[in-house]
């Protein structure tokens, strides 16, 4: 489903070039839960963004459902990403001026949707957010915000969910809820890649890899 082949990525740092990824290889099958962990600055988020088609590698290829991600134009890549990948971030990255329902529906502005409000309702029900439908992110608890982010990630029925430290700002209970949702997604043949420091998540994962200085150990 997802193939990352010999990917390298270098950034310009204050002390010269920084190799964030070095000849990294990775593959992911449908229904697989992959945890990526490692110390800060090891290249975890860079790997995730490269895998998501948002950060072109200097070298190597990324295939998603056998499509060479970076051979597509920027706009086509955006549409492809929107259809296939759902994102969850540590900071939730909700749009402040949209309500819960609108945040969940927001991917439809890019792709369009036949029955957006109905789909949003289903997701709000699934994530126990119905009573918060018209609330704004500032009016929600951190757990609720992350659930909104999760619901938004699932809006387009993606094949993969990519999550960057999704439990980083959550307490234990909310972390548990989130992990349950991710496991539920995986059990329905969805693939999950999660970047985390949280050892509990690593325990739930089917497979985990450790990154250090841009290399898979």
């Amino acid at each position: 489903m997802l193939e990352i082949k010999n990917v390298s990525k270098t950034f310009d740092g204050p002390d010269g070039k920084v190799e964030a990824l070095k000849d990294t290889n990775l593959s992911l099958k449908p229904g697989e839960f992959l945890a990526i962990h490692g110390p800060s600055g090891s290249g975890k988020s860079t790997l995730l963004l490269t895998a998501a088609g948002m950060l072109a590698p200097d070298k190597g290829k990324v295939f998603l459902e056998e499509q060479d991600f970076y051979s597509l134009s920027v706009n086509k890549r955006s549409i492809f990403r929107s259809k296939k990948i759902g994102f969850v971030f540590q900071q939730f990255c909700l749009v402040n001026y949209l309500s819960v329902a609108e945040n969940i529906m927001s991917p439809s502005a890019a792709l369009g949707c036949d029955n957006c409000p109905q789909r949003a309702k289903e997701l709000m029900k699934k994530f126990n957010l119905e009573h918060r439908a018209n609330h704004y992110p500032a009016q929600l608890s951190t757990g609720e915000r992350q659930r909104v982010a999760m619901a938004r990630a699932m809006f387009n029925n993606p094949a993969i969910i990519m999550a960057d430290e999704p439990t980083g700002n959550l307490d234990e209970d909310n972390s548990k809820v989130l992990i349950d949702f991710l496991l539920d997604f995986k059990n329905k043949n969805g693939a999950v890649i999660i970047v985390t420091h949280d050892s509990r998540i690593v325990d739930f994962a089917d497979r985990s890899i450790k990154l250090n200085e841009g290399m898979v150990l």
Binding site: N75, R81, V95, A109, N156
Partner: peptide, 16 residues
């Protein structure tokens, strides 16, 4: 900035 990033991530084109 963050909003632009997330909109990009959820599939917004540059023109949008």
């Amino acid at each position: 900035k963050e909003e632009i990033g997330i909109l990009n991530a959820i599939g917004f084109k540059s023109s949008q």
